[in-house]
């Protein structure tokens, strides 16, 4: 195998760059072929895993229901995922955002978003009709704390009939869950349950229970810690693909160890490393007399 000289420049900096962005250390060392190869292969595999797991296989913690509320558990797979560097770092920020006070069940900002869901009489599934439109929700001070009120303007999906519904917060005893889901949660859809106060436009006999979801912005769900029900939903729907998605992101992190080590030490074979100043090292041999 012919030897080639590689100028590793500042090895620790190259290793750090390769950790942050796979292949970046090699590109800094002007080893473009390997840099692009590591970048495409490792980030490609990481991206494929994220895509297969619907954007959710990377998370620091997850929460399961236990005695006295939610129990926080560590996702040890993240130790491998974090080796991919910057691409896995949002999970750390999202973990702290998830636990911060900004993440609340209360409606801190008005919502004005496209909505998809159903309207039905109480819990009677037979009476439900699919609705689609734009929902606007506002928090107003009420006697028992914050109250939510709003409007839905849209259409009935089956008939295409336009509807305009005045909404209020459901009575506590009729709530299936909270009226509006957490601001920051791993689900791209934010749950909404509201009560139809008045049908301003639409057919008679429309139910009073409006259940559906609005889109959650990417920054409020991507790499956010998962909750028990979300994990079960992903496992149930994706099955082995969820497991494979996790494995792909772990593998990408483990493969990046090779890229980091290559940036720090050079390749294992076929190399005569150069010094930091770009001069060849002395070939091994007997010490001078």
């Amino acid at each position: 195998m012919p030897t080639v000289t590689v100028d590793l420049k500042t090895p620790w900096l190259a290793a750090l760059l390769s950790w942050a962005i796979p292949g970046a250390g090699q590109i800094y060392q002007k080893r473009y072929f390997k840099g692009i190869l590591f970048l495409v292969c490792i980030l490609g595999m990481f991206g494929l895993g994220i895509n297969m797991g619907e954007g959710r296989p990377v998370y620091v913690n997850y929460y399961v229901a236990g005695e006295g509320g939610l129990l926080k558990k560590r996702n040890y797979g993240y130790l491998s995922q974090m080796l991919v560097g910057a691409a896995a770092m949002p999970a750390i920020i999202q973990s702290s955002r998830f636990e911060s006070e900004e993440n609340t069940w209360r409606l801190t900002q008005p919502i004005d978003e496209p909505f998809e869901g159903v309207v039905r009489a109480g819990r009677d599934v037979a009476s439900q009709q699919a609705v689609r439109g734009r929902i606007s929700l506002n928090a107003v001070p009420g006697s028992g704390g914050q109250q939510i009120e709003g409007h839905l303007v849209g259409t009935l999906v089956e008939t295409g009939e336009p509807i305009d519904l005045k909404l209020s917060q459901p009575p506590r005893e009729r709530l299936d869950s909270i009226p509006v889901g957490l601001r920051i949660s791993a689900d791209p859809k934010r749950h909404v349950q509201m009560w139809v106060d008045q049908v301003q436009q639409g057919p008679e006999g429309l139910g009073e229970n409006l259940i559906g979801s609005v889109a959650r912005p990417l920054r409020n769900w991507y790499q956010v810690p998962l909750q028990d029900n979300e994990l079960q939903d992903l496992n149930g729907r994706l099955g082995k693909r969820w497991e494979l998605a996790m494995v792909l992101t772990w593998l990408a992190g483990l493969l990046n160890i090779l890229a980091i080590w290559d940036a720090f030490e050079g390749p294992a074979y076929g190399i005569r490393p150069a010094t930091a100043r770009g001069e060849d090292r002395e070939p091994p041999g007997p010490a001078p007399q």
Binding site: L37, I42, M45, L248, L255, Y269
Partner: peptide, 28 residues
């Protein structure tokens, strides 16, 4: 469909492993 993922995964592992062993693009 799930099994087919073994081919791109194997290719990526082989490429990254070989790239960490050799410097020359042809050898890799």
């Amino acid at each position: 469909p799930t099994l087919f993922y073994m081919f791109p995964v194997t290719a990526v592992i082989a490429l990254v492993y070989s790239a960490s062993r050799y410097e020359d693009a042809g050898a890799i």
